[in-house]
Write a protein that binds this DNA or RNA. Structure first.
Length: 435
RNA sequence: GGAGAGGUGGCAGAGUGGCCGAAUGCGCAUCAUUGCUAAUGAUGUGACUCUUAACAGGGUCCGAGGGUUCGAAUCCCUCCCUCUCCGCCA
C-alpha cells in the first residue's frame, strides 16, 4: 500500500533503541509483530543508504565538472558516470525492495499500550471502573426496542432490509424525530463546551483510512468505492476529522483543537453473521456525533484530554437519565492504534446487560505520524501531534437505550427533559398500545 | 463529461537543463533603537534522513510516480489535486 508521504509510523528510532518495549507492547495486545525482521531490514537499508549517498555525491560533483571541461576530460567523465549510474541503479533497486517490505511491516506494528491498560485476552477481561445511574425498575414486563418500535409503527426493519439488505432499517414518525433530537442535543452539548462543529466528507481516500490506522487490517469492515474512485465510506467521523489537518505543520497557538462532527457511519459488519441480528444494535448505517481532540505531544495533557472526552460523554448519558458503566479496555481487546481505550456501556433492558455505546481512545502520536500531522513547539521544533476521540452519541444504540429504559407500561416513551425542546416540548411519545 | 491554466518553503511568489534547496516579499526568532506599543535597522529562519561522542559533513525532497539526459524544479509520459469556461445536476 503506497502512502504519498514520508512514513515514520511507530518511531523507527524507538524500535531500534527499545525493541523489547515494542515486543512487550505487542504481546500485551496479543498481536504479532516481527521486530527482528524490521531491525534487520532497517539496518540493511541504512547500510545501502550510506553507499548510495556517497555515489550520488560523486555523481553530482563530476556532473558539475562537465560544464567547464575540455574534450578529453569530458570523455573521462562520461565513462565514469556511466559506471556510477549502473552501480547506483543496482543499489537503489535493492534498497527499494527492502524499504517496501519495511514499510509494509511498519504499518502493522501495534502502538504500545499505556501502563494503565489492564492485562487480559479479550473483552471479558475489561476492567469496570464505575457504574452510574439506577437501573430501571419495571412493574411490568419491559419490551424490547423492536417490539416498541414496531408496535408504535416507528420502526420498519423488513422494508429496510428490502431496500438495502439485512442490518438495515427505516425509522418512522416520532422515532425519526427522536433520532434527530438526540443527535442535535449531543451536538449542542459539545458546542457549548467550546468544540468546533464540523460537517465533513464521509467518503474519503484510502490514504486517509491508512492515516487514521483503519487500514491495513480493517479493509473488510469498510465499504469501498475504490474500483473507480479510490474512495471508502467511513465507519466514523473520526476519520475525516482527525485527518483534517494531515500533512500540515500547525502553530502552537492553534492547539489544542477540539472538534465535534455529526456524520453518517457505515460498517460492513463482516464476520458478525448471526450476531446481534435483531433490531438496531448492529447495523450497517447510523448517525453519530463524534468528538476529536488534536493537541501537542505531551503525555500528561493527552491523559487529561482522555478523561475530559470521557466525562463529556458521561454528561450526555446522565442528562438523558441512562444508566451506564465505564470499562478500562484490556490489552487483548485493544486495537492496533490505541494506547488506551475506555468504553462506555449503556444499560439495555432487552439485553439484560450493558451494551457498548461509546469508545474513548487515546493514540499518542500514532495517527499523527501516519497522517504527517505536526506542529511547531515552543522551541521551534517540529513534532507530531497527539490525537484522541470519543463517541458523544451514536443514533441507533442511543435509541435502543432511550426506548427501553424510558418505556411505560402502555408502551409509550418518556422523553428526558433535555430532549423535549427538540420535540416540541412533548414529554411522552407514542400512543398507549398495551393495556 | 469537454476545453484551458496551474500545483515551488509557514504564507505569497520568481525561477524553462548545471552557478537552484531555490531570488524577493510577508511572517517568525534574536539583537539594536524605543517610556509602552508601533515603526525602523541588523542578523537569522524549510522538512526529512544518514554518518558522528561532539564539532561538522553527506543525501533526499519544488503535487505523486515513472522516463529522457553525464546532469531535471525546469523536457516527456501517467496519475492526483486546484482554478476558469462549457455541459449535466440535488
Amino acid at each position: 500500500m503506497a502512502l504519498g508521504r514520508p512514513l515514520t509510523l511507530l518511531d523507527l528510532k524507538l524500535i531500534r533503541s527499545q525493541p523489547d518495549l515494542v515486543r512487550a507492547g505487542a504481546a500485551k495486545k496479543r498481536m504479532a509483530c516481527d521486530v527482528d525482521r524490521i531491525l534487520e531490514l532497517d539496518e540493511s537499508s541504512r547500510r545501502l543508504g550510506v553507499e548510495i549517498d556517497a555515489l550520488r555525491q560523486e555523481q553530482r560533483n563530476s556532473g558539475k565538472r562537465m560544464a567547464g571541461a575540455d574534450a578529453t576530460e569530458r570523455e573521462a567523465i562520461l565513462a565514469s558516470q556511466a559506471e556510477l549510474k549502473g552501480r547506483l541503479k543496482d543499489l537503489e533497486t535493492e534498497q527499494n525492495s527492502i524499504q517496501d517490505e519495511l514499510k509494509a511491516l511498519l504499518l502493522l506494528v501495534p502502538n504500545i499500550p499505556a501502563e494503565e491498560v489492564p492485562e487480559g485476552k479479550d473483552d471479558s477481561e475489561n476492567v469496570e471502573i464505575r457504574r452510574i445511574g439506577e437501573l430501571p425498575q419495571f412493574d411490568f414486563e419491559p419490551r424490547s426496542h423492536i417490539d416498541l418500535g414496531e408496535g408504535q409503527d416507528w420502526l420498519d426493519i423488513l422494508r429496510g432490509a428490502r431496500l438495502a439488505g439485512s442490518r438495515n432499517y427505516v425509522l418512522k414518525g416520532d422515532l425519526s424525530l427522536l433520532e434527530g433530537a438526540v443527535m442535535r442535543f449531543a451536538l449542542d452539548v459539545m458546542v457549548g463546551k467550546g468544540f468546533t462543529p464540523l460537517s465533513v466528507p464521509t467518503l474519503v481516500r484510502t490514504e486517509t483510512m491508512v492515516g487514521t490506522g483503519y487500514f491495513p487490517g480493517g479493509e473488510e469492515q469498510a465499504y469501498r468505492c475504490d474500483e473507480r474512485d479510490d474512495l471508502c465510506l467511513v465507519g466514523t467521523a473520526e476519520v475525516p476529522v482527525t485527518a483534517l489537518h494531515q500533512d500540515e505543520i500547525l502553530e502552537l497557538g492553534q492547539l489544542p483543537m477540539r472538534f465535534v462532527a455529526l456524520s453518517s457511519c457505515y460498517r460492513r459488519e463482516a464476520g458478525t453473521y448471526g450476531k446481534d441480528t435483531r433490531g438496531l444494535y448492529r447495523v450497517h448505517q447510523f448517525l453519530k456525533v463524534e468528538q476529536v481532540i488534536i493537541d501537542q505531544a505531551d503525555a500528561a495533557r493527552s491523559l487529561e484530554h482522555h478523561l475530559e472526552i470521557l466525562q463529556n460523554s458521561e454528561e450526555v448519558l446522565q442528562a438523558l437519565s441512562l444508566p451506564y458503566r465505564v470499562v478500562n479496555v484490556c490489552g487483548g481487546d485493544l486495537g492496533q492504534p490505541q494506547i488506551q481505550k475506555f468504553d462506555i456501556e449503556t444499560w439495555m433492558p432487552s439485553r439484560e446487560g450493558y451494551g457498548e455505546t461509546h469508545s474513548a481512545s487515546r493514540f499518542h502520536d500514532f495517527q499523527a505520524r501516519r497522517l504527517n500531522l505536526r506542529y511547531r513547539d515552543a522551541d521551534g521544533k517540529v513534532q507530531y501531534c497527539h490525537t484522541l476521540n470519543n463517541t458523544v452519541a451514536a443514533s441507533t444504540r442511543m435509541l435502543i437505550a432511550l426506548l427501553e429504559n424510558h418505556q411505560t407500561r402502555e408502551g409509550q416513551v418518556r422523553v428526558p427533559a433535555p430532549l423535549r425542546p427538540y420535540l416540541g416540548g412533548r414529554e411522552l411519545l407514542g400512543k398507549p398500545i398495551y393495556a
